[in-house]
């Protein structure tokens, strides 16, 4: 599974994102952060139960700093 999201360009926000990911019961395979002028683009490849991934996505989406988020099932 892959989660793509955009947050405001702030390491504080990034810290909040990581604080959520570290509590999810998933295995993070890869995490890339790319800086733009005003935002960070974050891509996260993870292994885990689909329900757990869904929970993680909705938990991340609770953060106001997460401006956009999408979950892609890379197996399909």
């Amino acid at each position: 599974m892959k989660i793509n999201f955009t947050i405001n360009k702030s390491l504080d926000s990034l810290g909040r994102v990581l604080a959520i990911i570290r509590r999810a019961k998933v295995d993070v395979k890869n995490l890339t952060i790319t800086a733009d002028t005003y935002v960070y683009q974050v891509t996260c490849n993870i292994d885990g139960e689909p329900d757990e991934v869904r929970w993680l996505v909705s938990k991340l989406d609770k953060l106001p700093e997460v401006l956009k988020i999408e979950e892609i099932d890379i197996n399909h």
């Binding site: 504080d12 810290g15 909040r16 604080a19 509590r23 609770k62 106001p64 700093e65």
Partner: peptide, 14 residues
């Protein structure tokens, strides 16, 4: 304080 309250706040801003 931001680092400390990160997981227990809906929003933080310095």
């Amino acid at each position: 304080i931001l680092g400390i309250v990160t997981p227990i706040t809906k929003f933080v801003y310095q």
